[in-house]
Structure formats: structure tokens, C-alpha cells
Design a protein around this nucleic acid. Sequence first.
DNA 1: ACGATCTAGTTTAGTTATAAACTAAGTAGC
DNA 2: GCTACTTAGTTTATAACTAAACTAGATCGT
Lengths: 135, 135
Amino acid sequence: MAKIDAVKVWSLSYRLLTAVIASVAPDLAALGLEVKELFVLAEIDEHPHPAELAVRLSMPKPSVTVNLKRLEAAGLVRREIDPTDLRRHRLLVTPAGRKIMARGLALLSDAFGARLDRLTATEQGHLKSALEKMI
Amino acid sequence: MAKIDAVKVWSLSYRLLTAVIASVAPDLAALGLEVKELFVLAEIDEHPHPAELAVRLSMPKPSVTVNLKRLEAAGLVRREIDPTDLRRHRLLVTPAGRKIMARGLALLSDAFGARLDRLTATEQGHLKSALEKMI
DNA sequence: ACGATCTAGTTTAGTTATAAACTAAGTAGC
DNA sequence: GCTACTTAGTTTATAACTAAACTAGATCGT
């Protein structure tokens, strides 16, 4: 079985993602949301501490700080000091944040979903499981 | 057949790519290459004009200019004015550029290939063809 | 219990990216 | 062949990013 060209597959993935991001960026901007802000916002429920977000999103800590500041200023996120560790900030998505997040993710879902729909349901399942193995 | 959650697949792809980028960035820096510079460099053969590069890489034109400037300053790329259209620049990868490009792509191929190797050859083929349909 | 070390998060300072405006060249309509 | 429009690429001014250094709190070893 011929070995697959990793760079070729890489390049396809990269171009696909950047194209989708570029296509949704203006719509997100209309919501008052930067692309990275949405990505941060969307991970808060699962990873409610800045340091975890930085790891999960492969983003430097100061970038997380900056993005959270904007989300907080926009009233989409709140933060509390963790009483068991006064260095840690527990992040909370506000109701307004949840609303914007849902709208932002819907835009992303539409844009990316349009591409996914070119695959059969079986192919979609294979894609998802392939990605899960590679993560 | 249950409909796949587009955001979930998106998030997997995004995290995979950003993690791979973050892991190769330091090695590329040791080669004197920014990540985006490598991506630009690698597309020049196929798209030897700045405007095409901008479209192909979903990158704003000024960013292409900046990256090309650095690549040119490093002696990895040359540019000629297209004699049939004096506005256009025809880009050429120099021998030095070709060498660095090969090394950079090898680093990327190693990092991403390590993930791809978690899939069977058949799964790799399915992944590639799924991406080709979605591009 | 207290100095050394580590971790969470931020600030600062320097770099990088980009939107908006520009120059220069080409194309189209009349 | 001249005015209006489009396209290629760059410059400039501003915003975004991030490496290095910092503050504050936790942990560890003795």
C-alpha cells in the first residue's frame, strides 16, 4: 500500500481551515467577535481556567489574557477567584456570552457544514474518527 | 444515519493543526523560517505571483508582501517583473530556498506524519480524499 | 516554619499582521 | 486616444500577537 504524502494531506487541511476561517470572519465581526475570541469562548465550559485554555488552544498565555479581557469587557465572560487557589481564575460564560457563542458557532457550523455535506454520512463518520485518532 | 456535529469536527481539525504548527514552529525558527514563510515558500512553484498566493493561502495581500520581503532578504526567493504585464511579479524559488523549503517541509512531514501514522493506510487514503472533496 | 522552587496570570516592550489608502499598469467603452 | 474602471503590489498607520520579565500565591524540602 503506497505511503501517503503527509505534506499533501497537511496542505489540504490547512487550506480548508484557513478558507473556512476567512469566510466566517466577517460575519463574526458583525457579531462583535474576533475569530480567536470565539474559539476561546467556546472552550471555556470545558476548560474554565486560562492556563488550560492556553494549552488546549496551543495559544500563548498572554494571548489568552488579552482575549479574555475583551470577552469580559463585552460582558460575555465573568471571572471569579478560585477560593481553593487564589492564583486561579474560574471563568464563567454569561447568558449574553452563551447567546453570542451559539450564534458564532452556528455561523461556523454553517460554513464548515457546507463543506462536510459534500461527504456521505459514512465518510463524515470516518473523517471524525480519523481526526479523533490523530488528536 | 445521525447527522454529524460540524462544530465538533471543526474543533478536532483546528486543534490538530494548531498543535502541529506549535510543535514545528521552534524547529522552523532554528532554520530561520517563520511558519507562514514556509507556507508561502511552498506554494510559490504552483502559484508564482503574489496575488495568487494571497488567494490560495487565504492571506491578505500585504501579509504576502511582508513574507516575500523576508524570504527575498534571506535569499530564498527572487522576483522578476513579468514582461507581458509590468504590474506582475514572477516569483522564483532560489536553490538556497529550495533547500530550506525541503528541510522545512521535512520537519512538517515528520510532525504531521507521526499523527497520520496512527491511521491505517486505508484510513489515510479516506482522509485525503475526504479533504479533497471539501476543499 | 521558612527559604527555594514552581505555577497562575498579567504587564511590558518589541515584533508581526493587516485594513485603508496609495502608485503604477492594464483594460474597456466611447 | 482619452476618461473611467479594474488589477498588482506596496506603503503607512494601527491593531494584534507574543517572548521576557514580573507579581502573587502555592508547594516542597528540610
